[in-house]
């Protein structure tokens, strides 16, 4: 027995490495590249305080004289060199991007997790319980689907702005963003999970569990949930890209992350003003980062969809 237990995990890892999924991944250069780009961006923003040459939010480290320094060129007054230049307030663009991406990714991950938990729960319950519970949940989903996510997010943001006292606006902005994007995105998860649950519910293994006398909760969590997760994974990846874009859009429109805590969208909003006056780097680098992030997450999601769909293989 002891032999078996010691070899089991190893052989499971070996088995996993040999699976079609991993094989597929290793054969797809696009998937590999986008996976590493995502990892690079996520890790560098997670360790932003260690990597960034400056802390853009520490006023003492800023020198207004350094404003509008072009990339890789010494500043006219101070002689300091910045890889990607500086913005109007002399903040290092490279550092602001690292910190901005932190905000973007945090909002993205948090909003998707929120939407996922809400959507999976409601979708499972709607699909398994059925009846009027299902009718109410799915009608609500239909109505919300009629309204584009970005609009719902804006409305929630607008309402929150009216409800929250003005002195707390900046502080609460990030959380309002997360709730707004999360609430506008749960429908996708709920619909997919409900659809999959309806299929799984009629399968005989669920009936076998019911015959044993298992309760609804256990059947939903232990039997159905694990079997509806693979489409959820695909949607979560694509939703992450959408959430990052939505956050950037809201912040760009000035109804998202505040200038005191800028995300990539806020940085682009700031940079837009200098596009005509020739300081192209203030807008270019955050834009490229945003595009790289969204594109690599999307590519990964696209690959996942194909890899997890056995029909297409």
């Amino acid at each position: 027995m002891s032999d078996q237990t010691s070899t089991a995990p190893q052989s499971r890892l070996a088995k996993a490495m040999d699976s079609d999924f991993v094989y597929n991944f290793r054969r797809s250069p696009v998937a590999i590249v986008s996976f590493f780009v995502v990892m690079l961006l996520v890790l560098s923003s997670a360790f932003a305080p260690l990597i960034a040459p400056h802390n853009p939010f520490d006023p003492s480290s800023l020198d207004l004289m350094n404003g509008f320094t072009a990339p890789m060129a010494p500043n006219d007054f101070t002689g300091d060199v910045f890889w990607l230049g500086t913005d109007d307030q002399g903040r290092d663009v490279f550092s602001t991007i690292l910190y901005g991406m932190r905000v973007s990714l945090f909002v993205g991950f948090a909003a998707v997790s929120f939407a996922m938990v809400l959507g999976i729960t409601l979708g499972l319950v709607a699909g398994y319980v059925g009846g009027w519970v299902e009718t109410i949940i799915m009608r609500a989903a239909d109505v919300q689907l009629t309204f584009p996510a970005i609009l719902v997010a804006m409305l929630i943001f607008g309402i929150a702005k009216g409800v929250i006292p003005i002195q707390h606006h900046d502080q609460m902005a990030i959380w309002v963003l997360i709730v707004a994007i999360g609430l506008s995105d749960w429908v996708q998860f709920a619909r997919v999970v409900r659809g999959a649950t309806l299929v799984e519910k009629d399968k005989e293994y669920v009936q076998a569990a019911r015959m044993i006398g298992r309760g609804r909760g256990i059947i939903m969590l232990r039997h159905i949930l694990p079997n509806v997760l693979s489409p959820v994974l695909v949607i979560a990846t694509i939703s992450l890209a959408l959430a990052i874009i939505a956050e950037a859009t809201l912040s760009f429109l000035g109804v998202g992350a505040p200038p005191t805590q800028p995300s990539l969208g806020t940085l682009i909003r700031i940079g837009q003003g200098y596009l005509f006056s020739g300081e192209w780097w203030i807008i270019l680098f955050p834009s490229v980062t945003l595009l790289a992030l969204a594109l690599s997450v999307n590519l990964l999601g696209d690959w996942l969809r194909d890899a997890l769909n056995p029909r297409l293989q």
Partner: peptide
């Protein structure tokens, strides 16, 4: 098309303005 899906609308707009207007 995947780049199209990943490009936020406002970036497309800014890009077009930069190219065709500026």
């Amino acid at each position: 098309s995947l780049i199209g899906v990943s490009l936020p609308t406002f970036l497309i707009g800014i890009l077009l303005i930069y190219l065709f207007s500026v």
